[in-house]
């Protein structure tokens, strides 16, 4: 994967949070994912097919998603279904937005949402995964990009 590819995802993520909430997330130092799991309470996964293959996922705490959903819906009454739904939507929007850069042959799947701290999220073994730590309003989350 090229450096510019990774930047597309970072920009798309930063843009999402800024556009929706008015607050930019702070991008931490990215690193290569090793054997250790990078999973928080809720994870939204998107499969990528077409000319590029792989997957991306974003993982976040329930607290962060609660705050985010609260801002989007303008209410404090946010339940678990909304939170689950939101993490899928975030993953979908981030990967959908990068199509502008990658082109129409960058195909994205519908989101798959994993609730609870899974052991780890499986990504293809033969493709390197990059972890981008994000801090939005003091909440930590991670974007993982695994692209051929």
């Amino acid at each position: 994967m090229k450096e510019t590819d990774l930047h597309f995802f970072i920009d798309s993520t930063v843009n999402y949070f800024e556009e929706i909430t008015g607050y930019k997330p702070i991008t931490g130092i990215p690193y290569l994912k090793g054997a250790e799991p990078v999973v928080l309470e809720y994870t939204g996964i998107i499969g990528i097919s077409g000319k590029r293959k792989g997957s991306i996922y974003i993982t976040a705490s329930g607290e962060m998603l609660q705050t985010l959903a609260g801002i989007i819906l303008g209410t404090k009454e946010v339940g678990s279904p909304e939170i689950k739904d939101l993490i899928g939507e975030v993953a979908n929007t981030i990967s959908g937005n990068v199509r502008q850069a990658f082109g129409t042959d960058f195909m994205i799947s519908v989101p798959v949402v994993v609730e609870g701290k899974a052991k780890d999220i499986k990504t293809p073994d033969d493709i390197q995964s990059f972890v981008i730590p994000l801090t939005w309003q003091d909440h930590k989350s991670f974007l993982i990009v695994c692209l051929e």
Partner: peptide, 23 residues
Amino acid sequence: ALSDKATGLKAIKLGAKSFVGKP
């Protein structure tokens, strides 16, 4: 969320009257 121009144009071609990108 599919914000690429080609998808937008395709939608308009198929008869959509408006196109709003997410977010």
